[in-house]
Amino acid sequence: MSKTRRATHAGSWYTNDGRELSNQLEEWLSKATPSYSPARAIIAPHAGYYYCGACGGHAYGQIDPTNVKRVFVLGPSHHVRLSGCALTETSTYQTPLYDLIIDQKINEELNATNAFEKMKIGTDEDEHSIEMQLPYIAKVMERKRGQFTVVPVLVGSLSSDKEKLYGSIFSQYLADPTNLFVISSDFCHWGQRFRYTFYDKSCGEIWQSIEALDKMGMNAIEQMDPVKFSQYLKDYENTICGRYPIVVLLNAIDVLRRNGNGHRMSFKFTNYAQSSRCKKTSDSSVSYAAGALLMQ
């Protein structure tokens, strides 16, 4: 078993030159207004940085690393069928900036619930949804290098019962102010190549219809309502690839609200973008959104 997960998408999805990457991330972060800081959780996109790096900066710009000791990264499984969640078996994750240390203690705690599978190294290294968050995490946590750990979680296609189960498990960690949650998700994948061509002509052009559709879902997330978001997904079948990690977060928030633990919580999206503006049915695009959860 390999103890290190290689940065397999470096050099293709983003530059593998550490200095160039650091400068890129710094530039994107400098354009973000930290209006929702310090975030306890963020939603950030996971496409190639050429497409979504700028949008991601608006999510990561809400992070204050001062009190963060642990970063949970929940990403959807793109290549392997999973009905639950899976944890890494490695001890470090490589990035072109520096290696991130896996939190073995938390992995043991999660494994003890018997609710988690283990990722094979091939599955781990094939999956981009987690990897695309790692350089940004390394960058925003730079001054805490060696003083924080990461908990990567691969999230499968969950039943509503499992969405609630994982929400309940993660709620205790979300309540801890030394933990940060990164939820990895792109939004609408539109076009014939994605087999999704919903178009409400009353919105204007196709790209405007896509934006209106995405913002309906973003509104449900901002209301922190897992039932409303799940119903929206059923009604419109929007191709949000991180839908399950998002619903797990919403269920974790819901548990804390129901427990009446005194936290005041609010969620806000700070940026929205599309890879291109679709104007005809032969076009295609992927949408990206940056959002942050505040807990006081």
Rank of each mutant, 00 (worst) to 15 (best):
Val150Ile: 12
Leu154Asp: 00
Lys280Trp: 04
Tyr36His: 11
Ala86Ile: 00
Glu205Asn: 03
Ala175Thr: 05
Met1Asp: 15
Ile253Met: 10
Glu27His: 14
Pro152Arg: 03
Glu117Ile: 01
Ala273Pro: 07
Lys268Phe: 08
Ala7His: 12
Ala252Lys: 07
Asn259Trp: 09
Ser37Pro: 03
Asp235Pro: 04
Glu142Cys: 04
Ser91Arg: 13
Glu125Gly: 10
Val140Gly: 05
Met1Arg: 15
Leu154Val: 02
Thr123Val: 10
Ser287Met: 05
Arg277Leu: 12
Tyr51Arg: 05
Ala273Leu: 09
Arg19Gly: 13
Asp99Cys: 13
Arg40Asn: 10
Ile169Thr: 05
Lys162Cys: 02
Asp124Met: 09
Lys162Gly: 01
Tyr98Asn: 05
Leu294Phe: 14
Leu294Trp: 12
Leu74His: 04
Ala290Met: 11
Arg70Asn: 09
Leu249Met: 06
Ser287Gly: 13
Val150Thr: 03
Leu213Met: 05
Ala32Asn: 04
Val255Glu: 14
Phe267Gly: 04
Thr66Gln: 11
Ser2Leu: 14
Ala86Pro: 00
Asn271Arg: 15
Gly262Val: 07
Cys203Pro: 00
Asn251Ile: 11
Gly217Met: 11
Asp186Ile: 00
Ile63Cys: 04
Leu250Ile: 12
Ile183Pro: 01
Met119Leu: 07
Glu142Val: 05
Glu222Cys: 12
Ala59Asn: 03
Arg243Lys: 12
Thr88Val: 11
Asn107Asp: 02
Asp124His: 09
Thr90Arg: 07
Val80Met: 04
Ile63Pro: 00
Gln172Arg: 15
Gln62Phe: 04
Ser282Cys: 05
Pro177Gly: 04
Lys120Gln: 07
Ala54His: 10
His79Phe: 09
Trp190Ala: 01
Val227Pro: 13
Ile121Thr: 06
Asn16Gly: 08
Met224Ser: 14
Asp235Met: 07
Leu294Cys: 10
Arg195Gln: 14
Ser37Ala: 12
Arg81Ala: 10
Lys228Met: 15
Phe229Ala: 13
Gly48Val: 02
Leu29Ala: 02
Ala47Pro: 01
